[in-house]
Design a protein around this nucleic acid. Structure first.
Length: 263
DNA sequence: ATGGTTGTGTTACAA
């Protein structure tokens, strides 16, 4: 059994006490981190490695930054989303670890929309489509997880009308997210916890957490072979109520070592 | 209430 989790930590240095306590509780085998907001040189590597994890980092000063933690060796490392050599934003890291190919995705927010940032988001999603299309040909167990900054349906946001024009909910974003799914991916959370009110992010402002004004924008997308092994999923909501929390919470799934047999 | 909060790193910008 392999437990994989994704978490947008909103600064690994500011969040280190929250991250280490959660690692000790949740005991994930593989972790996909986003918004580490620092470079490899200043990533708190020792505190993570002391807990038995190998670490791969694609960092950036002040903004963005993604990382992989794994109890197994990390191989075949890819840093940066292929398809645009001029893209300087650290939003994608991919590797093969413990028999699973994994990607940590920090998809651009895209606000304000319309505008240059929204155009960048949509172009980035086109590149992600091409990368996943390539990975599908490998016929592997893979998990693409992260902060997709896309709320797939109106059931995934507390106030659909109020958010209709936001880059996270606009039809252009949802259309491209659906195109990814149509490559043959399975939304792990969507499968086992369908319906409204399952959120992964609550804004810091306006008492959003206390009012449960949330959105579901952090996803674990499984290849067909990974979906065949899906055993359980969860969202660690309790972390949002802790001291100095991230505005996102961890989302996790468990994959069986072998393909599940029919009953 | 033209607001609210957090983080980085300066006093602006991104989310």
């Amino acid at each position: 059994m392999t437990k994989l989790a994704t978490w947008n930590v909103n600064s690994i240095r500011a969040r280190l006490p929250r991250v280490t306590e959660w690692l000790d509780e949740a005991k994930p085998d593989v972790v996909l981190l986003q918004e580490i907001k620092t470079v490899a040189e200043t990533f708190p590597r020792d505190e993570i490695e002391d807990r038995g994890y190998n670490v791969a980092i694609f960092g950036q000063k002040s903004y963005n930054g993604v990382a992989l933690l794994s109890k197994s060796p990390i191989e075949d490392l890819v840093t940066g989303l292929p398809g645009d050599e001029a893209d300087e934003q650290a939003r994608y890291i991919e590797a093969f670890t413990g028999g699973i190919r994994v990607g940590s995705i920090y998809l651009p927010n895209g606000n304000p929309a319309p505008g240059e940032k929204f155009d960048y988001k949509l172009a980035w999603m086109e590149r992600l489509f091409e990368r996943i299309k390539e990975l599908m040909t490998y016929d592997e167990v893979f998990v693409m997880g992260g902060d997709f900054n896309v709320c797939p349906t109106n059931g995934d946001v507390y106030d659909p009308k109020g958010w209709a024009d936001d880059a996270l909910c606009r039809p252009e974003s949802r259309k491209r997210f659906q195109a990814l799914m149509h490559l043959g991916l399975t939304d792990a959370i969507g499968v086992l916890q369908p319906g409204a009110g399952v959120y992964t992010y609550w804004d810091y402002t306006g008492g959003a957490w206390q009012k449960d004004f949330g959105l579901r924008i952090d996803h674990l997308l499984l290849s067909p072979h990974a979906a065949d092994r899906l055993v359980d999923v969860g969202i660690d909501r309790k972390t949002r109520g802790r001291e100095k929390p991230s505005d996102h919470v961890p989302v996790w799934c468990e994959l069986a070592a072998d393909r599940l047999q029919p009953a």
